[in-house]
Amino acid sequence: MKKRASIIGGAAAIAATFVVFVIPFIFIVLMAFKDRQQSALRDFSWPTGFHLWENVFEVVKTRNWMMITAFINSSIITVVSVTLLVIFAAMVGYVLARRRTRWNGLIEFLILAGLMVPPAVVPTIWLLQGLKLFGTLHGMILVEVAYNLPFSIILYRAFVSTIPRDLDEAAIIDGARPLDVFFRVVLPLLWPVTVTNIVVQSVGIFNDFTNPLYYLPGNANATVQLTLYNFQSQFSTAYNLLFTNILLITIPPLLVFLFFNRQIVAGMTAGAVKG
């Protein structure tokens, strides 16, 4: 009785989620397989021919291989920012969780502020120009680090406070100097939260559109999200190419999702239970 109800309910849920969540993705894939004429209809139909490779090639070589440059730029920004984020945030999260000083309140306030306060865009541009970093990948990387630090720090701090302080003290008695305590004892134990950090921040930074829009004007340093946005007007009649582009930039998050599903969910739900 109960079992049958669960199967019927399951079937209904599968059907509903299929329509709502899966069909849009199938639509993207189908469009990417079509030729220009068929794609112009924008309907949910089977492709008349297999045009994926042509489409991919055309998208990639458009505007002087812009797509390749963009992928490289996005990869550099993502890899470097995430590396810096992990190192900086682990250091802050560790000391913040362990050392009680009168600054802790202020630091925690600034971290929470970072999660809430919208970045002041134009003053940042003005400042980056002053530092000769506006429009450069360096500048973009530093901005991504600054904007995403609070979240990473919170993840690290929460995790560090689950590591018993006795371990630090045992190491100190064993003769460990401060850097030994961090690098030999604590850091190896932070591996799970480091993976979570890498995965969650990579996806976020790779998909970031707003910040590159402001801080990386022009074509030279465009990211994949910017090129997709620009292609929207350029390919306004070539839906097959537009959707091929969408398909291409969906692949990295898809891979992350397939391999790190658990860590992403862990990272994004961190703190939800504690409130």
Partner: peptide, 18 residues
Amino acid sequence: PRDRGIAMVFQSYALYPH
């Protein structure tokens, strides 16, 4: 602590898990 010639056994044992 390392130069005091002492060793300590903790209530939680504090063994390094890794």
